[in-house]
C-alpha cells in the first residue's frame, strides 16, 4: 500500500515536470502503434472485447516504456496480425495497407528511438524534432516509392511474386549482412 502511494506520488511529480514535446513524441508512438494494429489486424479481432484491450496495451506500451523491448513486440504483433488477416482470413494484399503498415511501423520505431533518449522533462529544441521527423519522412517516402514500384512490377509479372520476393529478399539480406559486419568490425 505504501509502495503504491509512493508510486502515485512519483507519477504525479513526473506529470508536473513533463514538457510538451517529449509527451507529444510518446503520444505519437502510441498513435502509430494503434493505427498500425487497426490497419493490420482483422476487423473481427479488433472488434472483439477479448483481444481489443490486449492489442491496445501492446500498442501503447512502447510509449510508456520506450527503452524496453515493447517496440519490437508491438511491431511483431502488427505483422502477426497482418499475416493472420491475409493468410487466415484471406484478405487481399492492398497497396494502401502495405504502405500504411510499413510507414507506421518505421515511424513507431524511430519515434521510440527518440523517446528512449529524450527525457520527459527536457526543454526541447524544435530544430531537433524537426530534423528527426524530416529524416524519418525521407525514409518513409523512399520506401513508399519502392513499395509502389515493386508491387506494380509484381502485378505486371503476374504470378512471379514468389520469385520477386526471393530476389529482393536475398538482396536485402546481403545488405543487412554487410551492415552487421561493418558494425561488428567497428565494435
Amino acid at each position: 500500500m505504501f509502495k503504491l502511494g509512493a508510486q502515485i506520488d512519483a507519477a504525479r511529480g513526473v506529470l508536473a515536470q513533463a514538457t510538451a514535446l517529449p509527451f507529444l513524441v510518446r503520444a505519437a508512438v502510441a498513435l502509430c502503434g494503434l493505427i498500425a494494429i487497426g490497419v493490420a489486424w482483422p476487423a473481427e479481432l479488433i472488434a472483439s472485447q477479448l483481444t481489443a484491450p490486449l492489442l491496445m496495451l501492446v500498442a501503447i506500451y512502447p510509449a510508456v516504456a520506450p527503452r524496453g523491448r515493447g517496440a519490437t513486440s508491438s511491431a511483431l504483433v502488427v505483422v502477426a496480425g497482418w499475416i493472420a488477416d491475409t493468410v487466415g482470413v484471406g484478405a487481399h494484399v492492398e497497396l494502401w495497407r502495405v504502405i500504411t503498415i510499413a510507414t507506421l511501423l518505421y515511424l513507431g520505431h524511430t519515434l521510440t528511438a527518440l523517446a528512449a533518449v529524450l527525457p520527459y522533462d527536457a526543454i526541447v529544441s524544435f530544430d531537433m524534432v524537426g530534423g528527426w521527423l524530416l529524416r524519418a519522412g525521407a525514409v518513409v517516402l523512399v520506401s513508399a516509392v519502392l513499395t509502389v514500384a515493386t508491387l506494380g512490377l509484381s502485378a505486371d509479372l503476374a504470378g512471379g511474386a514468389f520469385v520477386l520476393a526471393t530476389i529482393v529478399g536475398i538482396a536485402c539480406a546481403v545488405g543487412a549482412t554487410i551492415l552487421i559486419a561493418r558494425l561488428l568490425r567497428r565494435a
Partner: peptide, 27 residues
C-alpha cells in the same frame, strides 16, 4: 525486424513482408 521480415517474406513468398522491411533497412 529487417532480418525477420525478410525471412518471413522469403519463406512465405510474400513480397509485401519484404517491403515492410524496406524502411528499416533504408533508415
Amino acid at each position: 525486424l529487417t532480418g525477420l521480415f525478410l525471412l518471413l517474406g522469403v519463406a512465405l513468398g510474400r513480397v509485401d513482408l519484404v517491403l515492410m522491411a524496406a524502411p528499416f533497412a533504408i533508415g
